[in-house]
């Protein structure tokens, strides 16, 4: 009897995660989607964001988000993969055991700290050495690239280590060098994990808010160069939610709904690619 009740209760609890997900989806969409219908898709996906005049076009922010995300990947992927390959294949057990947890501990550093470092070091550096306002696509890309490193390193490392040792032995027996083995055998074998790590890192970069607000400059126009100021979807939400009312607030939720759809698609791809848990 007691066992039966406990099982029912646990089943109920077990739905807390998926239930929360549905609740979040419901509220974000319920708040945002009606506005999209009210103003029309062509207004919503236009270039003009001017809440006081009833213009809620998010295209420039979509492009902004896209630019900083691609930038973050350009910075994050080479360094992330290099670290993962070095740690998994070229370093001693001692080095692995020290560096892996250090990189993972650093994943816990709050995003505002990265943003702050951006403000005090990176932005002035870019301003003096490359010109422009400093608050830029470049600054955002570098900060986001650093932030997604631990995700990429950690997941790629795990999938490289998971490749059976017989693969390596077979390759060495054929006279291949370590590097040839890595490029021709291990990376292809660990491909799905590496891809999942990159996709999760991408999701993190698109969704990151505070660090980006601090270094992006947030000007409402499409940047012409990587030294120009940029505004993302997430920064618009965070910058304006505090005072927005009526249609303006609804438009911010619509931004959130759009972002939520993109991120959920990325998550599903990542879960699919790794065949997580099963």
């Amino acid at each position: 009897m007691k066992d039966k009740i406990a099982e029912k209760l646990l089943l109920f609890i077990a739905f807390s995660a998926i239930g929360s997900l549905l609740l979040i989806t419901f509220f974000i969409f319920q708040q945002g989607i009606p506005l999209i219908f009210k103003i029309g898709l062509s207004n919503f996906f236009s270039m003009h964001w001017s809440p006081t005049r009833g213009q809620f076009g998010i295209l420039s922010m979509i492009i902004g988000s896209l630019m900083v995300t691609v930038g973050a990947l350009i910075v994050g992927i080479p360094f992330g993969l290099a670290c993962a390959i070095y740690l998994a294949e070229f370093s001693s057990k001692m080095v692995q055991k020290t560096l892996k947890p250090i990189i993972e501990l650093l994943a816990g550093i709050p995003s505002v700290v990265y943003g702050f470092i951006g403000i005090v070091i990176l932005v002035p550096f870019i301003r003096t050495h490359f010109g422009g306002p400093g608050f830029s696509v470049l600054a955002s890309s570098i900060i986001l690239g650093i932030m997604i490193l631990p995700t990429i390193v950690s997941i790629s490392y795990d999938s490289l280590v998971a490749v059976p040792n017989t693969y390596r032995e077979g390759s060495y027996a054929l006279g291949a060098t370590k590097w040839q083995t890595v490029v021709k055998l291990l990376i292809p074998a660990a491909r799905s994990g590496i891809v999942a790590g990159i996709i999760l890192g991408m999701g993190r970069a698109i969704g990151e808010t505070m660090a980006v607000i601090m270094v992006a400059g947030n000007a409402l126009k499409i940047p012409h160069s990587i030294l120009d100021s940029v505004r993302t979807l997430t920064s618009t939400i965070a910058l304006e939610l505090g005072y927005a009312t009526g249609d303006h607030r609804a438009a911010l939720f619509a931004c959130g709904a759009f972002l939520f759809i993109i991120i959920t698609i990325l998550n599903i791809i990542a879960i699919r690619v790794t065949g997580h848990r099963e």
Partner: peptide, 15 residues
């Protein structure tokens, strides 16, 4: 559900 929720960005939780 748990995996998807883990990937939701914090600004969405804020909203």
């Amino acid at each position: 559900g748990a995996d998807c929720l883990a990937g939701v960005p914090s600004i969405i939780f804020g909203l």
